[in-house]
């Protein structure tokens, strides 16, 4: 594996793990479901995504 590919793999993994790619996925989905309709800007999307945590607490283990 070349260092470049390794870097690509690590970057892909971290972006997926931290949810950085959530917005891209949302845009993709939105484009398919409502073609032509304006999508949420990233700021608004991330806000809504994080604020869901207030109403859906997830447990962290001991």
């Amino acid at each position: 594996m070349t260092p470049r590919r390794l870097y690509g793999l690590v970057r892909w993994y971290l972006r997926e793990l931290t949810g950085e790619t959530a917005y891209e996925r949302y845009l993709e989905r939105h484009r398919r479901a409502h073609p032509g309709a304006p999508a949420l800007p990233r700021r608004e999307f991330e806000r809504q995504r994080t604020d869901r945590g207030d109403e859906h607490p997830g447990a962290r283990c001991c």
């Binding site: 917005y23 999307f45 991330e46 806000r47």
Partner: peptide, 14 residues
Amino acid sequence: YLRTIRPGRVIETS
């Protein structure tokens, strides 16, 4: 930072 300056940039913030 994540909320106002760089929304969604989790890796950089971390």
